Simulated assay, not measured.
Amino acid sequence: MTSALPAPSAPAPLDLTGDVAALTAALIDVDSVSGNELALADLVEGALRALPHLSVHRDGDSIIARTELGRSERVILAGHLDTVPLPTTPGSRGTVPSEWDGEILYGRGATDMKGGVAVQLALAAALTAPNRDLTFVFYDHEEVEGSKSGLGRLVRNSPELLGGDFAILLEPTDGTVEGGCNGTSRFRVTTRGLAAHSARAWMGENAIHAAAPVLARLAAHEPATVAVDGLEYRESLNAVRINGGIAGNVIPDTCEVEINYRFAPDKSVADAEAYVRALMDGFEIVRTDGAPGARPGLNHPAAAAFVAAVGAAPKPKYGWTDVARFSELGIPAVNFGPGDALLAHTDNEHVPAQAVRDCLDALRRWLAA
C-alpha cells in the first residue's frame, strides 16, 4: 500500500517591509504564468488588506488598492502579475523558483515585471501619508491577447476606481522614464492561386509565388522616425508569419502573410490601417488586430515633476504597453521600472537587486516629499 504524497505547502505571506529585492524573489517563486495568477493574486490581496490606510477592491485576479486622503492629485501605479510561460531549454536560469548569483536575481518575471510589482507593494506599505493620493493596480492576463486583459476588465467594470491625474506603469525601463508608447496593428494579406499536382505545376497557379511582391514591398519599405511631443518614435513594418500549402506534392492555392505595423502615437488605428492598405494596394488585406499608442503627456505638471525627480532625460517607448489604456481614459502615463526590457521573456531573465532598490527609492522620494 502506497502512502499519499503530502499536499504542497502554501506560499508564505509576503513581507512588504523588508528588502524590496527579497520581495521580488518571493514574487518570482510563485508561478504566475498567464491564466495561473490565482495564488499570487491571493497573496497580494492578503498583504494589501493588512494595510489599514488602503481600501482594497478585487475583480477576478486583479486588485486595486487606494488611499483616500483628499489630496489635490492622484497618481496611479500599475503592474501586471502574470508572466510568459517558463523556459524549456535545459540550464535556463529565467525560471521558477528564483536564483541568486551574487546581487543578480534570476527567474521568470524578474524584469517583466515582478521587480516593478515588488516596488508597488513596498510603496503601498511604506507610504501611509503620501503627498498625492495613490491608486495601486495589480492585474492579470497582460502577456496574452488583449481581450483577456485584467486591466481592460477593470476599465469596463470599475472605471470609477481608475480615475487619476497621472499614471506610472512599472514595466522595465532600466530606471529611465519612457513616455507614451507606439501603437500596434496586425494585418493578413492573402494571395490566391489554383491547386495542381506539383508534377504538373503548369496546370496550377502558385499562391506562395504570388506573395513575393508583398514581401518585396515590405523589404523595400523604409520605416519612419516621428517626433511626438519632443520624443522620437521609431516605427517598424514587417512580415511576421507566412502560411501556405497543404502538402509537399500540391501547388498551393492560398498563401497568407501576417504583417505587424508598430506606429508612432501621432496616428490612430484607422490612420495606420490606411497607411498599410496604401502600401499593399492591389492585394486582399484584412486588419486582424489593432491598439492605439499613447502620446507622452510629459507636459502635464505631475509628469513634469516626476521626470524632474528622476533626473534623467525621458525616452520614447517603442513597444506597446498598457500606458495606452490609461491614455484612452484621458490620464497621462509613462513607463518607469527596474530592469532591462531586452531581458524580458528570455531564458536568462534577471534583474540587479540594486536596480529594484533604486526604483523604489526614486518613487518614494517623489511621493513622500
Rank of each mutant, 00 (worst) to 15 (best):
T2E: 14
A7F: 13
A7I: 13
P13Q: 07
I28V: 11
I28H: 01
V33K: 01
S34E: 07
L48G: 04
P52W: 11
S55E: 15
H57T: 15
I63A: 06
I64Y: 01
E68Q: 14
R71Q: 09
D82M: 01
P85I: 05
P90H: 10
G91P: 01
I104Y: 03
Y106S: 01
R108E: 02
T111L: 08
A122R: 15
A124N: 11
T128L: 02
A129F: 02
R132K: 13
L134K: 11
Y139W: 13
G146D: 13
G146P: 06
G152N: 12
L161P: 12
F166D: 03
L170R: 09
D174P: 00
G179C: 04
G183I: 07
G183H: 05
T184L: 11
F187N: 09
V189T: 07
T191N: 12
L194T: 15
A220T: 10
A220I: 07
P223D: 02
E235T: 05
L237E: 06
N243G: 11
G245L: 13
I246F: 07
I246Y: 10
G248R: 14
G248M: 11
V250G: 09
P252V: 10
C255T: 14
E258K: 09
V276H: 05
I285N: 03
R287S: 08
G319R: 08
G319K: 10
T321V: 13
R325F: 07
E328L: 04
E328Q: 15
P332F: 05
V334P: 01
N335P: 06
L343S: 04
A353M: 08
D361M: 08
A368L: 08
